[in-house]
């Protein structure tokens, strides 16, 4: 089976910067797996994500998502791909029901948003304005919107930021369930517990370079660290500082 996402030699440099935001990045996400992209702020996570989505133009390299070009075949691709952005922004005064309807109507095939609202425990907010939802409720809503098209692949940016412990675990369960049904998930997150529980494979970015891809276990092994957190810090070169900081 062809990979869900294939990125070859992706490079992107912003006009305001000399060094590339992403340099010669190669990445493959297989169908049916959960892939987590990690990296400190400014490492190029957003740029990579946006180039894969086709919302940003890469300087060079090729991106293929579900075998399609996200820029030239955008409308076909997004029939089958759901996206949750880190800062989901909504129209003023729009209600949960209205934003769900507006999302649903754009697709040929879709899941009933009422069932999704129930699954994510948001049914009671159906008629509430979106901007009156709590941080966690908004986050769950943005995941629901990404799932409405009954996607084969979802992109979840900063998946559970703003959710409380219970809500995070709920989201994890739902995602594992969706994975069982064959959904491919590409996510970014700052929470190592979440990465460890969910991801089949991870990629670690450091200053625009993808310095590691593999399983969580492999990351621990290569770095010689016992926890993913320390392995991550070891890869990004922040481990020493961290330990020194702690000893002070």
């Amino acid at each position: 089976m062809s990979p869900a996402i294939e990125v070859i030699h992706l490079t992107k440099t912003y006009k305001t910067n000399h060094s590339p935001a992403v340099a010669d990045l190669n990445l493959t996400v297989e169908t049916g797996e959960i892939f987590g992209l990690l990296g400190p702020n400014g490492a190029g996570k957003s740029t990579t994500l946006e180039c894969i989505l086709g919302t940003r133009k890469a300087d060079s390299g090729t991106v293929s998502v579900l075998g399609l070009n996200p820029k030239s075949q955008r409308r076909k691709l997004y029939e089958e791909v759901g996206v949750q952005f880190q800062e989901g922004s909504y129209q003023d005064r729009i209600t949960v029901k209205e934003i769900c309807e507006e999302t649903e109507c754009l697709y040929k095939t879709y899941d009933d948003y009422r069932l999704l609202l129930e699954k994510f425990n948001l049914s009671h907010k159906l008629t509430s304005p979106v901007n009156e939802l709590s941080g966690g409720e908004r986050q769950r809503l943005s995941i629901i919107l990404a799932l409405i098209p009954r996607p084969k692949l979802v992109f979840l940016d900063e998946l559970t930021t703003g959710l409380d412990t219970y809500a995070r675990k709920e989201v994890w369960e739902i995602l594992k369930e969706l994975k069982k049904q064959g959904l491919t998930i590409f996510l970014t997150s700052h929470f190592m517990d979440e990465i460890e529980i969910l991801c089949d494979r991870i990629g670690i970015l450091k200053i625009g370079n993808l310095i590691f891809t593999g399983t969580v276990e492999e990351a621990k092994k290569v770095s010689g660290q016992e926890s993913l957190e320390n392995a991550y810090l070891w890869f990004t070169g922040e481990l020493k500082e961290e330990l020194e900081h702690e000893s002070i």
Partner: peptide, 17 residues
């Protein structure tokens, strides 16, 4: 305003023309 607040960007990752 829709562009500034990334509402158009949300439409960009849907099949909407």
């Amino acid at each position: 305003d829709y562009r500034h607040r990334k509402i158009l960007k949300r439409f960009q990752v849907t099949p909407a023309h």
